[in-house]
Deep mutational scan, measured.
Amino acid sequence: TEIRININGVTIHVRDASEELKKLIEHLLRLGADEKEIREVLHRWEK
């Protein structure tokens, strides 16, 4: 699944996002995570 996240005008594009990762990101956004925090989570997730 491919997702695009727009945070304050900055688009983060994620290829091959699992449903689990998608739910995690949606949850973090609801909690008010910023772009830097989302990128950090994505970076750690890929490892």
Rank of each mutant, 00 (worst) to 15 (best):
I12H: 03
R15W: 10
E19W: 14
E19H: 10
E20H: 06
E19Y: 12
E35K: 02
L24W: 10
E2Q: 08
L28E: 03
E26I: 12
E46D: 15
E2K: 03
K22R: 11
E26T: 11
D34L: 10
E19T: 10
D16A: 10
R30S: 14
E20F: 05
G9N: 08
T1K: 07
T11D: 07
G9M: 03
K36E: 11
V14Y: 06
V14I: 09
G9H: 04
D34K: 07
E26R: 09
E46N: 12
T11M: 12
I12F: 06
I7W: 02
G32F: 03
L21G: 01
L42Q: 00
K47P: 15
R30Q: 11
N8M: 09
L29K: 03
E26F: 14
E19R: 10
S18G: 07
K23I: 15
G32Q: 05
E37G: 07
R39P: 00
N8K: 07
K36Y: 09
I5F: 10
E46T: 05
E40I: 07
R30N: 14
A33L: 05
T1N: 11
K22M: 14
E19A: 13
E46P: 03
K36M: 11
R44G: 06
V14C: 07
A17P: 11
I38R: 00
R44K: 14
H13P: 06
D34R: 05
N8W: 04
E2V: 09
D16T: 07
I7A: 05
D34T: 12
L29M: 10
H27W: 11
L21Q: 03
D34I: 05
H13A: 11
E35M: 08
I5S: 00
I3V: 06
G9E: 06
K47E: 15
L21R: 00
I7Q: 02
L42N: 00
A33T: 10
E19Q: 10
R30V: 12
H43G: 05
I3P: 00
D16K: 10
K47H: 15
I38Y: 02
W45D: 02
I5M: 04
R15N: 10
L31H: 12
G32D: 05
A17Y: 08
E37Y: 13
H27T: 15
I12N: 01
I12D: 01
R30Y: 15
L28H: 14
W45F: 07
K22C: 02
E37R: 11
E26Q: 13
H27C: 07
L21P: 00
A17K: 02
R4P: 05
G9P: 01
L21D: 01
E19M: 08
R4G: 05
L21T: 01
R4Y: 14
I3Q: 02
D34G: 10
D34P: 07
V14F: 10
L29W: 08
D16M: 04
L21H: 01
R30A: 14
V41N: 04
E2N: 10
L31T: 14
G9L: 03
W45N: 01
H43W: 11
W45K: 00
R15E: 08
V14K: 01
T11L: 11
I7E: 02
D16F: 07
E20L: 08
I12E: 01
L24M: 12
I12S: 02
E20D: 09
E40M: 05
L29I: 13
E35H: 08
L29V: 13
